[in-house]
Amino acid sequence: MTLEARTKPANDLRADTVGIMAVVVGPSGAGKDTLMNLAARHFAGRPDVHFVRRVITRAGDPGNEDHKSVSDADFDAMERAGAFAVSWEAHGLKYGIPADVMDELARGNLVIANGSRSVLHRFQAVFPRLKIINITARRDVLAERLTARGRESREDVMKRLERSSLTVEGSYDVADIDNSGTLEDAERAIIAVLEALIGM
């Protein structure tokens, strides 16, 4: 897989980011998008909690994530104009975290973004106060969920999962949430982690 990550130059970023950036990551099938949607519903109406709407070069929304869909050309133009705090490429798509999250952080707010384990070092370079929320599940649970999507055989899914890591590598502040059990348990867990970050 080819993956490229970019950030704005450090001197272009706001230095007064007193809020916390929480980046939610996890393997396919772990339920990351579902849990983020549930958390967003829980915190709806809270001015001190901001869920990031990513910019993605993906038409429509085939999954659970509410995002802004743009063309490759528009994404590149936005990037040149400094519209992103962090941007990266993965699996043939481009992803951007809008630069206006810096305003939310400057107000001392909690900002939550859907991220990727492969580019966490880029988030760390931009956001001085960073929390990683790693959504995981047992490999057999992931295999069952991924096989149910019908895109791969269970054998292919298991081979891919055996090669992958479910942990976050590097020196980050990480909260692991196991979503192998009930969705309600995982929902309570992610809400508890986010509640603890508010006002820190």
Rank of each mutant, 00 (worst) to 15 (best):
T167L: 14
P47I: 08
I135C: 07
A44D: 14
R117C: 15
V157E: 01
Y95S: 01
I191C: 12
T167C: 08
F123E: 15
T136C: 07
A192N: 13
R154W: 05
F123P: 04
D103L: 06
A15S: 13
L110S: 13
L183T: 07
V86Q: 07
T182I: 00
V49N: 00
K131Y: 10
D103Y: 04
R54A: 01
D72C: 00
T167Q: 14
V174H: 03
S171A: 14
I177M: 06
L146G: 03
Y172H: 14
V101E: 02
V25G: 07
S116L: 11
I191M: 06
T147N: 05
V18Q: 07
T182P: 05
R53E: 08
M200W: 01
R151Q: 12
H42Q: 09
R6T: 07
R58E: 01
I190M: 08
P9N: 03
L142H: 02
S165R: 13
M36N: 05
M21T: 02
I132V: 15
A73W: 07
V25W: 08
I177A: 05
W88R: 06
M21R: 01
W88H: 06
M1K: 09
D103A: 13
M200L: 11
D103G: 04
D48S: 12
S116G: 12
A83N: 09
A81E: 10
L161W: 10
A39T: 00
P98R: 05
D66F: 09
N114D: 15
R160E: 06
K94I: 00
Y95W: 02
D12I: 00
E195W: 03
D178K: 08
V168S: 05
G150M: 11
D140H: 13
